[in-house]
Nucleic acid binder design. Structure first.
Lengths: 242, 242
DNA sequence: AATGCCAAGATTGCATACGATTTGCCCAAT
DNA sequence: ATTGGGCAAATCGTATGCAATCTTGGCATT
């Protein structure tokens, strides 16, 4: 099984100023492939394979994998390699608990700083989201998941706290993995209407309401998951070893 | 100027099971050196120097520096090297804003899970903190800052969310840097009595009150900073370049 | 004396080589 | 037929070498 066809090499931002760091570009590309499920959880990402795919040596491929490991998107096992993370139900719960804690604060900060231009950008983003929602096929599904996460990231961006923004980057990415593994209804996973409701409250300057809506939204996402089932890999988990 | 004397090679945990990863040990050692100010902000950490200090090649030293860069403790400039971070006042504000958001949630989670054994551990920790507070000299100051941060980390640990725990790891470490740069009264920086007050509320099961006390505590730490002054290095900052 | 320029030294970015560890397979022995 | 041992392939961990880039010191010029 080759992963080459799963990678979209045009992922790198067009404004790729002077190849700042090639490992960063590789990280972005792999990140995108993981969060919209072109790379399934458990997939092995060997250093040499990644390296030859991007025409770099193992050194720089390794750096990219280390970064992904740091943000929890891949897990590395010593002398074995890197694998796309397979978050456990417990991990999933902690991810959403963290989001429930952080996102209301982000909303509260955003309501103070959001501009009409921001609102317009959000509306465009939501339109696109809607578009993918109406389409069929796996590609549209992927795009929808991505767009849905982007809404939360845009919110973090206008909140203006780069640290929280980075935390959200990680949480949204890992949420995508969790939804891929445990999502049940799938399409309705990240209710589009709830995004617009949050945005409406923000536009009216009602931070309280926006924060409440956001919490409900996160609750709904988590409620759509089936976190009871043990993941299939079994044994290790069944025996709760390692 | 040699940094070798600033590093404490016994930092690595005694339970160093089978050298899991040498770069991790180096990271820990450097981290500790940074957060208790043996390495001042702005200090250059060259790959070869770090490597020879720990008797490893540049490859593994580099990995350690990359990890530290990821958690914001060092900044790397392309083709120039890695430097201990020099957080700006704005960064400092964002760090404390993040803590104000996250720590009350951690306290709320901790009150549900804390055990009498945990309480006893906390009391011992606070006693030690007090001990350092009474001593004089830079070594005691450093130990006090470290112990004060450890209180917050222990809290995150009993809260039981490993993701938030990692976020707090980063935030506490960066806070130490900020206090080193902008702290004014220094010793009273992280009021010891406020820690005991939080713990008392936790012991009584009063999560509401503990969370409120924690917010006030964070406010006090930040209020003790002087974030108006531009950092001394001048010029670059005065012109707000780079 | 101050400024601009150039070359030498130092340091990083990256690739590659080699040893160590793990995995998988094959074959023999029970 | 199943189990156990051992060898081979694959992959990772680490060191090191080379090219590119940046810094620094000195020298010439204004």
């Amino acid at each position: 099984m080759n992963i080459s066809e799963k990678i979209n090499f045009t992922d790198t931002a067009p404004e790729d100023r002077s190849q700042e760091d090639r490992s960063m570009a590789i990280r972005e590309s792999l990140r995108n492939a993981i969060i919209d499920r072109r790379l399934a959880p458990g997939t092995k990402l060997s250093e040499s394979e990644v390296g030859s795919l991007f025409d770099v040596s193992r050194t720089v491929a390794r750096a990219a994998l280390q970064m992904l490991a740091f943000e929890g998107l891949v897990k590395t096992e010593r002398n074995r390699g890197a694998f796309v993370s397979n978050p456990s139900p417990e991990e999933a719960r902690q991810i959403f608990a963290s989001r429930r804690l952080i996102e209301p604060g982000i909303v509260a900060a955003a309501v103070e700083r959001i501009t009409p231009e921001d609102i317009a950008r959000f509306r465009r983003q939501l339109d696109e989201e809607q578009r993918f929602l109406n389409e069929r096929g796996p590609a549209a599904r992927r795009a929808e998941i991505k767009a849905s996460g982007d809404f939360h990231l845009m919110l973090a961006s206008v909140a203006g706290n780069v640290i929280l923004q980075r935390f959200m980057d990680e949480l949204v990415a890992r949420s995508s993995l969790v939804i891929a593994l445990y999502g049940r209804s799938g399409v309705s996973s990240c209710g589009h209407s709830e995004h617009t409701a949050v945005l409406d409250a923000l536009e009216k300057g009602d931070g309280e309401r926006a924060a409440k809506l956001m919490i409900h939204h996160i609750d709904h996402i988590e409620a759509d998951l089936d976190l009871q089932l043990k993941q299939g890999s079994g044994l290790k988990d069944a025996l709760s070893l390692a």
